[in-house]
Design a protein around this nucleic acid. Sequence first.
DNA 1: GAGCGAAGCGCC
DNA 2: AAAGGGCGCTTCGCTC
Length: 743
Amino acid sequence: MNLLLLITSEDINFLPFMKSIIGAGHSTFIVDKQVGTLIEVISYCKKKNITGVITTQEHLIPKLARETFDRAPTLDDFAGSMFTHADIEFVMIPKLNSVVTQTYGKFLLQRFVSKLTQSNRWYKSTAFTWEVANESTLERLYNEFSSCIAIAIDIETVEENLAITCVGYCGIWISDVGDIRTHTIVIPCSSTYNLTYIGKFNSLPMGKIFQTGKYDISYLARYNVPVINFIWDTAVMFHCWYSELPKDLAFLNSFLVRDARYWKHEASVGFRDERYYLYNAHDCHNTANAFMSWLIEAPEWAKKNYIIEMPLIPICHLAEMTGIKLDNDRRREVKKHWEKVINTESAELNKMLGVTFNVNSSKQVAQLKIIFGCEDIKKGDEKALKKCGDRHALNKFIFDKVLLIRQHRKLVSTYLKDVGLALGDIHDENKQRVLYSLNPYNTDTARLASKEHSFWIGTNIQNQPREEEDRIKEMYVADFGFHFGEADYAQAESRGTGYITGDTGLIIAVESDKDFHSVNASKFFGVPYESIIDPGTGEVIDKTLRDLAKRTNHGANYYMMAKTLLDTMGTEKVLTAKKLLKLPIHFTPIMICEYLLKQFEQTYPVVRIDYPAWMIATVMATRMLISAGGWTRYCFGNPRDNKLNLNSLIAHCPQNLNAYLLNESWLRVFKEVWLIHWQNFKLNAQIHDSILYQYRIGHEYLNDMVKDCMHNPIVVKDIKGISRTMIVPVDVKCGGARWSDCK
DNA sequence: GAGCGAAGCGCC
DNA sequence: AAAGGGCGCTTCGCTC
């Protein structure tokens, strides 16, 4: 076919990539000047017999869409959208520089261009029909929907009072000859009558489809109209296919539906206006179509991933809706404590500097570095400021103070703010709970991610400061009559690395009864194990050397280079290492770090040499990484030419294996403990290698049940094809009325 | 004044 | 040229 590539001057440098993106067999005309009107483009196309236009010219969007916008529409939003004018099809595509700025840039351009060049291969969306339901139509609509095969649901909410404004349902019907038809209704959540019907629709037996439905079902549960048979989630579905791509519904539509057209800007219309319901209907219709397109096109491995991931959703929902009780008095007390400390420290710092200094201001920190002769140190983070401090005793005094104030400000602003949700009597602060969300579809590695709850309150529960002196975990309290328990996997990542790479030295080290980091210290630095740790008492004798081994192991595992290892450890520690290891006097800090990494490499050569090589070969050949649990990751990055891409993939395998095991445990704890003992057991959260829960005092046996659920032997095939069974030991800490008290 | 990206930092 | 992985939240400083 004849194509017009209508681009901007910025795109010109990336034109050479377009040849392979568009593919052979098409005559492509290129225009790189901004066109004034659509007529111009159309007449040009008619002359050249062009039937398809791919364009990056953002200013054309309002003309193509035939609408006016409150805010100028962006290419980011409209990339992948399609329009038709005078029998010519237009597809918006991302800026051509995305070929080099995004790992999946080329892939997406190819995908969008193929809407024109391979149109027959695309799923075509169903016709959009819709209506607002009312008291006179609901019964008939309910009867109609009773015969559909699946329903896509979406709710609209307002933040105030956590209110649902309307609920949309897009039914999917398949005729005897296989034709797919959809129809969408919107039920305003404006009367008891309507709410009753929302409940009835939610209770229909066929499978329900949501986009990030954990959000919707939390509100519907709050309204006591729970959803039956929620088994499809388009965000989960897409994450299971291309975990590295965006997962919002607008993107899914542009990716999965040929005639997709961006609609999210329609959300900003008058509340409960007819157009407000239209927006809701569009969401439902587009969710349904993304769902069907995925079912048709997604490969077998993505569907296998889905079987692994989707069952986590209801368990996460349970944990999210459970939350953790907050001791608000304690929160305020601790907050006051740190505020006082910050005031004192800031006063000292200001006095020394003679100005009011803001430790969080990048500008002011830059000034400070100039004054203290550290202009050459680029960044202003902890590592950099430590380096500034190393230059002079006075510097150390100042920059350490800056870091200390920062650390304490972080506690106050992030972890001690008022995030509790009042339940019942809102004036009784002792009834507050901290909520959070746990999302299986937000990471590349299949770990859960955490952030604030769907109720727009709460916090990420996975990064709460752990040090006792921070006093953060003490404000999280178990419910009355309950204690906390936390069961975690021991040395999960290093163990995984051992089994995945098949480095027998590492497997032996991690499986021995000895302390892993002390074994490493002994191996790396050629000293007897007994000089690191007392074999009789198990006490650490040489803390410094053990710590050095720990840092070296951590750095080397993530494929760190000497310079970064130096930054991480700090010059002081590195020089201590030099002394300790009796390294030649002429060794510079960077040489010392190179030496340390070399020691790791000699100890665990498979990890440091064979594994990266295997990674490059595997991913360059197949783009796929398949874990022992059967999870497949499609990798867009190029690990051969880009070290950061390589690093992320090196980290992926152990991280994913670990996440898989914990997710399996998460399911088992739900099925084997919560379902049976729910009166005496609460499931709180997953924190990457641990499960946090509560058990009723007097029911301590539940700790053992959790431990049993986490005992999941797994056969891991190493990079050479040798299979071994890996069992990760579980440590249980329990008995705390506060999270900080678990021992 | 709202919105956004970058930097910094908490966890594993 | 050189580059430590995976996340989410806050502050700052800038633009619109």
